[in-house]
Each structure stands twice: as structure tokens, then as C-alpha cells.
Amino acid sequence: MAVRIEKDGAPGYALTTLESLIAWGRKYSLYPFTFATACCGIEVMGAFGTHYDLSRFGAEVVRFSPRQADVLLVAGTINYKMAPVLKRIYDQMLEPKWVISMGACACSGGFYNNYTVLQGIDKIVPVDVYIPGCPPNPEGIIDAVVRIQKIIETGAPRAADRWPIK
């Protein structure tokens, strides 16, 4: 995107493509849907809270309806009872959509390796950004949002395009 402003202060013009204009608009109006099931959800609250303030990055309008959201933020353990619910919520979201997997549990099952815990949500939904940690700090969430913005800005392929991984 190229911007030109006249020397005398008169309004100039900007050159861009439609795609990058849309990407620019999307980038700063991400609506996250927080699928917070467990301890990581507390840190999600912290990220939206006063100290870390995720809204500085244009992602503060939390939607509790998947149909209005762009980013699915899965924070916490997903077990086999919950897995169909998560899948359904993902399917309900409109394209384009991105998925952040927050915390060791959502990424890989974490230190729960037993009969009930799903060993990573990427077994059932495509994941764009993983945040390590148990729980990750709120900075981790902010970083993940910025990475999603990068994906949007550069037009990099989403995980859903490579799904399912063979």
C-alpha cells in the first residue's frame, strides 16, 4: 500500500489493491471467540483485563456467538466429552477463520495423558498458532493475536487450507 500526501498539505491519494485493503481492515477488527474451558481461561481474562489490555491490538470485542467471530481461541483442556462441541463450534464459524490453541493441554494434552483427555485439538480442527505454556502468560496471547494479524497481512495460507494433515 503506497500513500502519497501533497507537499502543501492538500489531501493526497493512496494506492492499494482491494485485497490488501480488506486485509488491513480485517487485521485490526479481529473478533475472538474464547473457548475457555480451564485454567488457561483465567489468563485469557487477564489478557483482556486492565493490565495487559488486548484491545490495544484491535481484538477486544469478544463474541460469544461463533457465528460472529473470526478467531477461535481454544484455552484449556479438551476432553472427549467436549471434543464434539468444539468441532461443532468450529464448523459454525464463518470463513475466513483462524484458530489459536492456547496452553499445553490444547496443543498436545499437556501433562494429562489419560483415558479422557484429547491429545491436542489439532486432531479435530486445524490450528494456525500454538501458544506454549501451562498456562501461557497474557503476553503469549497478545503475541498469538499479532501473529494472526501477520498471517492476514501477508496473505499466508491458513492451517485450514492444509487440512487435514496427511
Binding site: 474451558t37 480451564a38 485454567c39 483465567i42 484449556g76 483442556t77 476432553n79 466429552k81 467436549m82 462441541v85 501433562f111 494429562y112 495423558n113 489419560n114 483415558y115 479422557t116 483427555v117
Partner: peptide, 30 residues
């Protein structure tokens, strides 16, 4: 409920006494 059942008891039966401590954090994580 049961949508967050993580098998605390089964996990702790396979851990040593000190290893159970981190599992107890995740009971009431508030």
C-alpha cells in the same frame, strides 16, 4: 457436567507424592 473431566485421580495414582502437587493446582485454578 464432566466437560472438563481430566482424570485427576487416575493421573495421581500414577505419580509420586510430590508429583501430585502440580495436579492440585489445576483443581481450583482460581
Amino acid at each position: 457436567f464432566g466437560y472438563l473431566h481430566r482424570g485427576f485421580e487416575k493421573e495421581s495414582e500414577a505419580a509420586t507424592w510430590t508429583q501430585v502437587v502440580p495436579y492440585t493446582d489445576r483443581l481450583n485454578y482460581v
